[in-house]
Amino acid sequence: MQQNSDKAFPNRAPTNGQLLSMFERMLTIRRFEERLGEDFHAGKLPGGVHLYIGQEAVAVGVCAHLDDRDRIASTHRGHGHFIAKGGDPAPMVAEIYGKRDGICGGMGGSMHVADVSKGILGANGIVAGGIPIAAGAALAAQLDGDGRVAVCFFGDGAANEGVLMESMNIAALWQLPLIFVCEHNGFSEFSPSDTVTAGKIRERARPFGLPAELVDGNDIVAVWRAADRAIDRARTGQGPSFIEAATYRIRGHLEAEAHFLSRSYRSEEEVERWRRNDPIDRLSRHLLSSEICSEAEIAAIEARIQNSVEEAAAFAERADLPDADRAPGLMFAGPAPGAA
């Protein structure tokens, strides 16, 4: 681990209340995505979905430190980041249903869920596409000088895009309040990471002088603490950091893949091994064994979330379709000043 030495770094741990609230957030992502998976296979969604199941601790552990003024850029696997950053799941689901009441009016879909008012600049269908956008948001934050930060979430696949190198260089050079969060989930689409990636991804940050650390991405406390350090550095003008979170993509690259892949790219044993390392199960065991909450309280949280999933799905199904001619009018914000 590499750290700047000019300031003592916080060595805080999440409070019991924070753990409980993160548990609820993680479970919310899980249950909403399970429902989206079912809805996809039931033919209810017009487009595909890339599910975040198994990676929830990363988004939630990082976003726990952010507020609406901070900005994030996400990936094609973006539902988890959206919910973790405080996005309302109901209009997110309606968006994925392609409805008028979707958060983007049905114009973006699963790969582009965004709520700019919450600092969610959007999921992104271009691998690594969000990285420089977050860097630009970090530049804006630096110019504003009010302590806000930007976070880019990206996968191990994006670590092989050149724009990451460019953006790390600029972020380090200008000491931008930017946190690079690489979610190493084991796969670049259908290619196991070790077949396409040389070396260790976090090592790529070090030549730029970025503090870089590897954390267990399925351990919410480890993610929370690494994010706490990195975000504290960014908020106090000490520049960017890099977190590599080791996790695993339990579901496929996209839900539809079983219909077109001619062979498997991983073993059932491998998936099973990671299922036993589930971040939500780990946290719930910790909550119970540390007597932070009871089985009954967990059941109550579960029931509350199930209820909100049902409500959101009903809302999405009920919602109207967008006007068919909606898109052209959305390309430009308006005529330039002085236009006829």
């Binding site: 956008i133 630009g136 948001a137 930007a150 460019e166 600029i170």
Partner: peptide
């Protein structure tokens, strides 16, 4: 590649 993306992020900011 980064600069054009940063322009988007700074404008969004």
């Amino acid at each position: 590649a980064s600069l054009t993306g940063m322009a988007v992020g700074a404008a969004a900011g």
